[in-house]
Amino acid sequence: MTATRVCALSELEQDAATRVEVDGVAIAVVLDSAGEVHAIGDVCTHGDISLADGFVEGETLECWAHGSAFSLRTGKPLNLPAYEPVPVYAVLIDGDDVLIDPTVKKEI
């Protein structure tokens, strides 16, 4: 599989998450305050909650329901109640296009 365009870079709001779906895989795409784009699994590992509805702070995305924060770089939870990581995907920026291949996990 090849990377799929999920949105335009210009459509992303800084320090906010956007939910996209590629081949049935829900992904939260985040433009952080440093201008870097991240893609992590959109479902909190503590509960079936969309992380894209959560809060971005620095390099973390916090689940709005129970407060678990996940590293945008590693997918690892930084606090309880979540203890399992979410997947992190490689992001390719091509001009204004944001591309993600959900079959390729980002090397950490």
Score class of each variant (00 low, 15 high):
Ser68Val: 08
Glu13Lys: 15
Leu61Asn: 03
Thr4Trp: 01
Pro85Gln: 10
Ala16Tyr: 00
Thr103Glu: 15
His46Arg: 10
Val91Arg: 07
Thr60Glu: 11
Thr103Trp: 09
Leu61Phe: 02
Gly54Phe: 03
Cys44Asn: 07
Glu11Cys: 00
Pro87Asp: 15
Pro81Lys: 08
Asp23Glu: 15
Ala39Trp: 03
Tyr89Phe: 15
Leu80Glu: 08
Asp32Asn: 15
Ala39Leu: 05
Val43Cys: 07
Pro81Ala: 09
Leu51His: 04
Val25Phe: 08
Glu84Asp: 15
Val25Tyr: 10
Ala26Leu: 13
Val20Tyr: 02
Ala8Lys: 11
Ala69Arg: 11
Cys7Pro: 02
Arg73Val: 13
Cys63Gly: 02
Ala3Leu: 05
Val25Arg: 12
Gly67Ile: 08
Leu78Thr: 09
Gly58Met: 07
Ala28Trp: 05
Asp48Glu: 13
Leu78Asp: 05
Val86His: 00
Ala17Pro: 01
Glu13Asn: 12
Ser50His: 13
Val98Met: 03
Leu31Phe: 07
Pro87Ile: 09
Asp53Ser: 14
Ile40Trp: 01
Gly95Glu: 12
His66Lys: 09
Phe55Leu: 12
Gly41Cys: 09
Glu13Cys: 08
Val43Leu: 11
Thr45Phe: 03
Val86Ile: 06
Glu62Cys: 14
Glu107Gln: 11
Ile108Met: 10
Asp15Ala: 14
Glu59Ile: 14
Phe70Asp: 01
Gly47Tyr: 02
Ile27Ala: 02
Val22Met: 06
His66Ile: 05
Val104Met: 06
Arg5Gln: 11
Ala82Asp: 00
Asp97His: 10
Val98Phe: 00
Cys7Ile: 05
Val91Leu: 10
Glu107Ala: 11
Leu9Pro: 00
Thr60Tyr: 06
Ala3Val: 07
Glu84Asn: 15
Asp94Asn: 15
Tyr83Ser: 14
Ile49Phe: 11
Cys44Trp: 01
Asp42Arg: 04
Ala39Gln: 05
Thr74Cys: 02
Pro87Ala: 12
Cys7Asn: 03
Asp42Tyr: 03
Val20His: 06
Thr45Asn: 04
Tyr83Ile: 15
Ala16Gln: 12
Ala17Val: 07
Ser68Ile: 09
Asp42Met: 08
Leu31Lys: 14
Ile27His: 01
Ala28Lys: 00
Val104Cys: 06
Ala8Val: 00
Pro102Cys: 10
Asp32Ser: 10
Ala82Met: 04
Thr60Met: 13
Ser68Lys: 10
Val98Pro: 00
His38Arg: 07
